[in-house]
């Protein structure tokens, strides 16, 4: 903060531009998450024809021919022949007589390509954004709650509480975070709830420390003295008078925490710690693409870009609230 008037104006202009960029990135992503069921062209786990539809590159136009109630063939460059249909499936030409096919061919447009099981990546990514955002928001709420509770109690409730809680925070901060996550994840069967608990429980210590510092300063301020003098109980002083002062800090922290959690979630997916299969997350799609890099670069490419976009937007939103960025997480 501070600085000359000219620099201040420059900072404001810059932060407005940053905010615009952030909302330009975040807006469509959140919209996509909310509208996923309506936007997705196909169900996210629809495997119509594994052999025919696998690894179709982005912008592929294909057709689904229904042969029976279960059997569907997905073909590209479909043509009508005098006897029925002819097209290319899995690199080979295949023909079907009109009597074999139930109904007319259904057009499929794979905007972002398909994965190793022939599922439409556009649909998977839309649902993936949704799931990733839900996980990130819930974990961030948990992390913020823990951070605020521990930080405020340590900062306001007196020396004994402060010592005890902060030693605990130090112990947790000394634990290698990924190792902690790995051990926790191996304790219980994988589920979305577990992922949220793990992500939330391992990302709150930084906030607790910062908040404790701020609360300690505030507790000695005139603001606190005035509130106490007017007869407010200690709890009321803390909740109504002191904690609201930390709102900017919490806003910045929420944005940065969300970014961290999204990155961590995707890293965990690569290590095989993710919500179990029917759930699709961006990290999960990316992890599945890492095995098929040579055949289908697009599987890993899109989720990575989406994650990067979300992280970028959240961090610039955070920087908009506070000009000085958090010390970057190096590990």
């Amino acid at each position: 903060m501070g600085g000359s008037a000219g620099e201040g104006r420059d900072g404001v202009r810059r932060s407005i531009r940053g905010g615009f960029l952030a909302s330009a990135c975040l807006g469509p992503i959140i919209l996509a998450a909310v509208l996923a069921p309506w936007l997705a062209p196909l169900p996210p786990d629809l495997q119509e024809d594994v052999a025919g539809a696998r690894y179709l590159p982005p912008l592929t136009r294909a057709y689904a021919l229904r042969l029976s109630s279960e059997r569907v063939r997905v073909l590209v460059s479909l043509r009508a022949t005098p006897t029925g249909w002819m097209g290319v499936r899995n690199g080979r030409r295949e023909e079907f007589t009109a009597s074999e096919v139930l109904g007319a061919p259904v057009s499929r447009f794979y905007l972002l390509g398909t994965d190793s099981l022939g599922r439409d990546l556009t649909s998977r990514l839309l649902f993936g954004i949704r799931h990733t955002l839900v996980i990130a928001v819930l974990s961030a709420i948990l992390a913020i709650f823990l951070g605020v509770a521990v930080g405020a109690v340590a900062g306001l409730a007196g020396r004994g509480w402060d010592e005890g809680l902060m030693r605990g925070v130090d112990v947790l901060r000394c634990m290698p975070r990924l190792l902690l996550v790995l051990v926790c994840a191996s304790l219980f069967p994988p589920s979305t709830l577990l992922l949220v608990l793990i992500l939330g429980a391992t990302t709150w210590t930084g906030l607790a420390r910062i908040l404790r510092g701020q609360m300690r300063v505030l507790a000695r301020s005139d603001l606190a003295a005035a509130a106490r003098a007017s007869g407010a109980s200690p709890l009321r002083v803390a909740l109504r008078h002191l904690l609201p002062q930390a709102t900017p800090l919490l806003a910045v922290n929420t944005a940065l925490r969300l970014a961290d959690i999204i990155l961590l979630e995707s890293a965990l997916s690569l290590l095989g710690i993710a919500a179990p299969p029917p759930a699709v997350s961006l990290g999960g799609v990316m992890a599945s693409g890492s095995d098929a890099l040579a055949e289908a670069w697009w599987i890993a490419a899109w989720p990575g870009l989406l994650i990067a976009g979300m992280v970028f937007a959240l961090r610039s939103a955070g920087a908009r609230f506070l000009r000085l960025p958090d010390p970057p997480s190096v590990a």
Binding site: L270, L293, I307, A308
Partner: peptide, 17 residues
């Protein structure tokens, strides 16, 4: 800020690719 937003292992995948 672009590079800082990239998941490091995604960058790894891009480099490998």
């Amino acid at each position: 800020s672009t590079v800082y937003s990239l998941p490091s292992f995604w960058l790894g995948l891009v480099l490998v690719w």
